[in-house]
Simulated assay, not measured.
Amino acid sequence: MIYLDHNATTAPSHAVLQAMAQAMAQHWANASSQHAPGQEARRCLAQARQQAAQALGCKPAELVFTSGATESNQLAVRGLLAGAPVGRRRVLFSQVEHSAHLALARSLVAQGVSVGWLPVRPDGALDLRAATELINPEVALVSLMAANNETGVLMPLAEVAALTRQAGALLHTDATQWLGKLPFRFDDCAADAVSFSAHKFHGPKGVGGLLLRQGLAFHSPVPGSQERGRRGGTENLPAIVGLATALSQLGDAGAVNAEARRQATLRDALEQGLAQALPELQVWGQGLARLPGTSYLRVGLLAADTVLQRLARLGVAASSGAACSSGGSQPSHVLSAMGVPREQALAAVRLSLGRDSTADDVNAVLQGLPALLAPLLHEAQACH
């Protein structure tokens, strides 16, 4: 099988599986217990936190372990909003956030919170002119993803951070798609809070993190003694060990950049080859700064399911967008926010490469897919 759905999830590495199995076998005790096995688990947790913090460029005390990015996002927005000064009760989200984050926004609205929306331009980039007008002294928090999970377009975090600082607001970013694909260090990051999930960079599912700057006013919506009172619940130690191992395997910025260039080269070859064979091809986000392995495209108006079925015949696993919302009859909310017509949005297919993708994978798609799609395109043109 050729796996081209790395934005949805990645396979846990062998080192991650080994580390998790060892932690599960040797450190199964509760890290909050005072007896010897519990204290051994506590030391293992502290070691994993130190290992993860070193890879993330943060202080160990700034790292909160969670069940994944969805929970991290909830903690960040609700916790920082609760700690905001009186008179600052407004939260801004971009229109192209992950669907789970948009569900949080709707929940806040239902609870009486003032919520606003940062629009994107037709190319998928954030509309900074609109953001400048919307980020004002009434805003407590701006929540903006670092990179879009569908188009791969990178968001202007530094510019938005400057706007939030000027307005006295905070910036939270969902870095789920960024981390593991591009260099990241919290000590160099413009955001005040950062969410991420381990399964996007060859770690386990069900574990992630929230980075919070020291000194922020944060009132946890999940109270408890664990994680310095910021996230209650017994720590999932094997998963945390897996997360720390996966982070340590990413390497330094040079290694991450080298892998990003390799994936971008493969992505460009894939897009150029398909464009030569299929003139009806359109790629969203092309020409903008975007994730190195993400290609979000349509082939004429061929339905996404039709293209995915042909890819499956070639042994290729791909998706029509975000894994949590693909396969439905509704167009992508990301493309809708960009103003893409419905019939074009319903043709959207996402091919996302990863560190196990090869030139042979790309060549297999280029050699097989155009021949399977060309007759369908001719038939569609004849009908029109």
Rank of each mutant, 00 (worst) to 15 (best):
P12G: 12
A21M: 05
A23T: 08
M24K: 15
A31V: 00
P37M: 00
G38V: 05
E40W: 04
Q47V: 12
A48S: 13
Q51W: 06
Q54K: 12
Q54C: 11
L56M: 07
C58S: 10
K59E: 14
L63H: 09
T66F: 00
A69S: 14
S72K: 02
L75T: 05
L80S: 07
V86C: 12
R88W: 07
S94T: 15
L102M: 07
S107C: 10
V115P: 10
L118A: 10
R121Y: 04
P122C: 08
G124N: 04
L128R: 13
R129Y: 07
T132C: 12
L134C: 02
L134Y: 01
V139A: 04
V142A: 09
S143N: 09
A146M: 06
N148L: 02
V153A: 03
M155G: 03
L157H: 04
A158C: 07
L163H: 01
C189I: 06
F196S: 11
A198V: 00
K200R: 15
G203Q: 03
G203P: 05
V207S: 02
L210M: 06
L216M: 11
F218S: 08
S220L: 07
R228T: 07
T234Q: 15
L237Q: 00
P238C: 04
A239V: 01
T245P: 11
L247Y: 03
S248W: 11
V256Y: 06
A258N: 04
E259P: 03
A264F: 06
L266A: 01
D268Q: 15
D268C: 07
D268K: 04
A277T: 00
A277Y: 00
E280N: 11
G285P: 08
A289R: 14
L291G: 06
T294Y: 14
A303Y: 11
R310H: 14
L311Y: 08
L311N: 04
V316L: 05
V316I: 11
A317W: 10
A322F: 13
G327V: 07
S329A: 13
P331V: 08
H333R: 15
A337T: 00
A337I: 01
M338F: 03
M338D: 09
P341E: 03
R350D: 11
R355S: 11
T358D: 05
V365A: 02
G368E: 02
L372N: 02
P375R: 10
L377S: 14
